[in-house]
């Protein structure tokens, strides 16, 4: 059997058996249940509130998996030296990282799929219990899947960043901290640059704006993958936007992954 696929399977099974996953699922279920209660507090465009709550649950679950399972499992393998048992066999370091990434991707995919289904169930229950509640404008399954797909892609970017920092840092906490910073910057940098360019709240020198624009080349623009407004308000999905954003996400993942491989190959594991 291909060693990459073998490690992917092992990582996936390890993730499924991990107790953290149960906690994450429980948290997501609680958020879905809150859909039924919280939507009653709104009277107009209730579908939008359901989308907000559903995707908040998906985000929290996905990020928890990356932070606690992804970083945790890779970090433990490296720092507890269990990685020796694998790379000592006819498995290259590159194959090991690819397998681990594949396993986590598979785990994220399955969890997103299950939680996405549960989100729909909670939408259904919420709508049935609340008279007058309707699905978002222009709702379609394709738009829902597209939004979930792009959400998944943004999580994969965070996952690739987390792998990079887990490999270069010596501490699990540092890896978590750096990954969280990138996640936060990724969602905020675009707004910060826009605010600076507008110059309504503060006046900054052009070189500072240039620096921030330069940083936006370095950090992933995670807000570009957020299509919740399109789903919640039935806004049109621009084909060119989807293709270019998809390509942008895939390219960023590939670059981060290659950097991770290079560093992991050079890393002294002893």
């Amino acid at each position: 059997m291909n060693p990459i696929w073998l490690i992917t399977k092992i990582t996936f099974k390890e993730g499924i058996r991990n107790r953290i996953l149960f906690g994450i699922t429980l948290l997501a279920l609680l958020l879905f249940a809150s859909n039924v209660v919280l939507t009653n507090l709104f009277s107009l465009e209730v579908g939008k509130v359901m989308v907000d709550l559903g995707f908040a649950a998906l985000s929290l679950a996905g990020l928890s998996i990356i932070f606690f399972l992804g970083i945790g499992m890779l970090s433990q393998d490296i720092h507890n030296k269990t990685v020796y048992m694998i790379v000592g066999r006819p498995v290259t370091r590159a194959q090991y990282v690819m397998g681990k990434f594949g396993g986590m991707t598979l785990l994220l995919f399955v969890v997103m799929l299950i939680l996405g289904f549960l989100a729909m169930v909670s939408f259904g229950i919420g709508s049935a219990l609340r008279p007058g509640a309707t699905m978002p404008r222009n709702f379609s399954w394709v738009s829902l899947l597209t939004t979930i797909g792009f959400h998944f892609l943004s999580l994969l970017i965070v996952l690739s960043v987390s792998f990079f920092f887990t490999v270069i840092s010596s501490s699990i906490y540092l890896a978590m901290l750096f990954t969280f910073c990138i996640y936060f910057i990724g969602h905020s940098l675009e707004t910060i640059v826009k605010v600076l360019i507008k110059g309504e709240f503060m006046e900054v020198s052009p070189w500072y704006v240039g620096l921030m624009k330069g940083m936006s080349w370095l950090f992933p623009n995670l807000s570009a993958f957020d299509l919740k407004a399109n789903l919640a308000y039935g806004l049109p999905y621009d084909g060119a936007y989807l293709i270019w954003t998809g390509l942008y996400g895939c390219a960023y993942i590939v670059i981060m992954f290659l950097l991770t491989l290079v560093i992991f190959k050079q890393k002294d594991l002893c």
């Binding site: 939008k48 907000d52 709550l53 936060f184 969602h187 707004t191 910060i192 995670l222 807000s223």
Partner: peptide, 14 residues
């Protein structure tokens, strides 16, 4: 609101 937008990230709508 811009500061809130920056701080709330993907949870801005929520």
């Amino acid at each position: 609101p811009e500061v809130l937008k920056i701080a709330s990230g993907e949870f801005a709508s929520l």
